[in-house]
Design a protein around this nucleic acid. Structure first.
Length: 467
RNA sequence: GGCGAGGUAGCAAAGUGGUAAUGCACUGGUCUGCAAAACCGGUAUGCGCGGGUUCAAUUCCCGCCCUCGCCUCCA
């Protein structure tokens, strides 16, 4: 098996090999969804990219420990659960379930551990206590606790915002009017614990500083410490999380433990729709369900989501889904043509070595897919020996497994039950054709087409396939 | 304003200091009564714009334009 995956690291801005600290298992953390509604395809781009990363690492022979959290307490989950007249728990469990359904449809490998924020309140409180003891945090008069950014000299390293003070001058006027802000010592400080407010309803927990709930950034730091420890291999999320979320995680964790926190940072670029950003108001924010209504499968969505390099913005269009459908069909047909008896489990890229190398180079999925097609296009399946065909098919399956692609049924074979009237019309057409009554045959074919069925003729007869 | 990512054929998207993968779409041929499918081909003298370095630049350097993201709780 070729060498390890080389992956771009946001912190050092270099491509670095991904090798486990313990030499055996790559332990990594992904920021998960906030469960207050269905995730959209932009969210899923990030999760799919992370999934490919994990699959490639595993395909290269390294085990993984994948931790991804569920954010089930924040302003939005509280607000929308109240709107829905549900308890926070019922509300977030419902959306968590929906998330899992979508993930499975997209062939995302489930994380080994999926901790929820509300299930780890005590760990978060403990971390705050450590931070206060170390002089990195302070309780405000209202019972909120804030992280003192000035106490951590490395703050801003990940996002390269070391000169943020200049910027703060400009935004100070706006922030000063926000009633939430005036209890903080500095505008840059962020909340670790938020004091209970009337609008929180029943959603509060006890703490040494009074009733309240944890701050968003803290959740991840506490759960990472619990499951991955003070040092772990890799941390990933969307680019928008670099600042402030990941910056704050680093501050909290490094100031409350002796570890270095994440040793590698992977960030996934955003998905755009029709050349612009996604937004609810424009109405171009799609969920899997939206696309299913338009007849597109999750597998087709996955293909589109990985069809651009994860670090470059990707433009999503309906046409790209059509394109994905055809590409998957082409792969399925190629796979079928290579079928000879039983194929052993895929174990190596075989003739697709170049594609595999491309994938190991910072997860160049589009390059790898291009290379796969390149090999398939040159292939003459009929000329291959059974052994060669099997080896090629194994290699193809190895690559598909690494990319998480499942092949669709080939259109011909997918033929559903043909209604009797359609069958009869098709037979009529065949008879007309045999009688060389081309005009009648063509009219009948058009009728069938209008009804949604295509006819494929061969010497012996015809087949009917859904359009 | 600061920081970051990107601008490659109709659409999407790789890549490289020596003259542009791949998928879709389009198109020519074989086949077919005609189609469909399949198979064999074709389609960017050009890689945002203007300079520079070089024997040679889409690829390196400088400037500019445009798009997208972040700038305190958005993947």
């Amino acid at each position: 098996m070729p060498a390890a995956l080389k992956l771009h690291d946001t912190l050092t801005r270099t491509d670095r090999e991904v090798t486990p600290l313990d030499g055996k298992t790559l332990r990594f953390y992904c920021c998960g969804p906030t469960v207050y509604g269905p995730a959209h395809i932009g969210n899923f781009r990030t999760f799919v990219a992370q999934d490919v990363m994990r699959r490639v690492v595993e395909a290269s022979g390294t085990a993984t420990l994948h931790v991804r959290n569920i954010t089930d307490v924040d302003d939005k989950t509280i607000r929308d659960s109240q709107k829905a007249a549900q308890t926070l728990l019922d509300f977030t469990q419902c959306w968590t379930q929906k998330f899992h359904t979508d993930c499975a449809a997209l062939s995302l490998l489930p994380p080994h551990i999926e901790p929820s924020a509300v299930a780890h309140i005590s760990q978060q409180v403990a971390m705050i206590e450590k931070l206060i003891a170390g002089g990195h945090a302070y309780a405000a008069a209202d019972g909120s606790v804030y992280f003192r950014v000035s106490s951590f000299k490395d703050y801003g390293r990940l996002s390269h915002l070391e000169d943020r003070e200049l910027r703060l001058g400009a935004s100070e006027a706006a922030s000063a009017t926000d009633s939430d802000e005036y209890t903080k010592d500095s505008l840059t400080d962020f909340a670790l614990w938020k004091a209970r407010k009337p609008e929180d309803g029943e959603n509060f927990w006890p703490s040494p500083w009074g009733e309240g709930r944890p701050g968003w950034h803290l959740e991840c730091s506490a759960m990472i410490l619990e499951y991955l420890g003070e040092d772990f291999d890799l941390h990933s999320g969307g680019v928008d999380l670099i600042f402030p979320h990941h910056e704050n995680e680093i501050a909290q964790s490094c100031c409350s433990t002796h570890g270095k926190f994440a040793h590698h940072w992977m960030h996934v670029a955003h998905l755009m729709v029709d050349g612009g950003k996604m937004s609810k108001s424009i109405g171009n924010l799609y969920t899997l369900e939206d696309l299913a209504k338009r007849g597109y499968s999750a597998a087709e969505v996955r293909y589109v989501l990985i069809s651009g390099h994860y670090r470059a913005p990707l433009n999503f269009t309906m046409h790209s889904l059509d394109s994905a459908r055809q590409a998957l069909q082409k792969l399925a047909k190629a796979d079928k043509a290579l079928e000879r008896g039983t194929a052993p489990l895929p174990a190596s890229p075989g003739p697709f070595a170049e594609a595999w190398e491309t994938l190991l180079n910072d997860l160049n999925v589009p390059g790898a897919i291009g290379s796969i097609f390149g090999v398939l296009n040159k292939l003459k399946p009929a000329a291959l020996s059974a052994e060669e065909a099997t080896a090629t098919r194994n290699g193809l399956h190895f690559m598909l497994q690494a990319l998480g692609l499942t092949l669709p049924a080939i259109a011909d074979e997918a033929a559903a039950d043909v209604p009797a009237d359609i069958q009869a019309l098709a037979q009529q057409r065949w008879d007309a054709k045999q009688a060389k009554d081309w005009a009648a045959a063509d009219i009948l074919r058009k009728q069938l087409e209008a009804a949604g069925w295509l006819i494929k003729d061969s010497k012996e007869g015809f087949t009917i396939i859904p359009k």
